[in-house]
Design a protein around this nucleic acid. Structure first.
Lengths: 116, 116
DNA sequence: TGTTTGTTCTAGTTTCCCTAGAACAACTAG
DNA sequence: CTAGTTGTTCTAGGGAAACTAGAACAAACA
């Protein structure tokens, strides 16, 4: 369900957060849907329970999931945004960057600056 | 010349790398131009010399600067790329994201995914 | 009532970042 | 050729963050 790369320089919990964030915003994770139990997902990813729980808590802080004991982590309803035009813009950035053979870090720096 | 925020969650050396990267790609740092000496910049930013040198070495690894003892860090000639269309695309992404009130992390996740 | 699931606590290891000082080698300037 | 500048390399240590581990606990569920 989720993929984790122990070799990546991004922290494990952050990778998980990104994946869920992506799933929600892409509609792969529907509102009301329940994420795997922390202990279960931890074993599947070969990671400690606390690492998964830290990711879940971060997602709760961002308002993406509802986190309650006994119930688990449930995907919250995002404000029904239409992402088609944003996705088109993102794809165009990726295409331009690829055409210029720019390293990903440079592009990300540009985007980060534009979002500031 | 450069700004560093000790409170930011991004490492100091990474902040410096980003700023130089941005300067080069934006044309504020011209090819052949020399960056400040490490010890000098370190004192100006109130940071250790090794921190600045780590940033410089990373920039060398990315091919952005030429680093030699006695000579300093000289900005390499980028492959004369035209960034106008990319900048336009980036600005559009930022505008769309702002309109949707999406958190920056989500947008960056989307871009990172698109660049993969 | 028993199970599931998140919450909280302590604790230890590892890794990364940053600082600090020193000696050294390549290059520049005079 | 000499002296100063600048990056390179080395050792060293402090501090924070990430990850792991185990345990007890509380809320919700079946």
């Amino acid at each position: 369900m989720f993929r984790i790369d122990p070799q990546a320089d991004e922290p494990l919990f952050a990778q998980l957060v990104s994946q869920v964030r992506l799933g929600v915003v892409q509609g792969r994770l529907a509102p009301g849907e329940r994420l795997p139990a922390a202990r279960e997902l931890a074993e599947a990813l070969d990671v400690n329970v606390h690492t998964v729980l830290r990711a879940y808590q971060e997602l709760r802080d961002e308002g993406l999931v509802d986190l309650r004991r006994g119930r688990g982590a449930v995907v919250m309803a995002p404000a029904a945004v239409d992402l088609t035009s944003l996705r088109a813009a993102v794809d165009r950035v990726a295409a331009e960057a690829r055409a210029l053979a720019l390293p990903p870090e440079t592009v990300l720096t540009l985007v980060k600056e534009a979002l500031r």
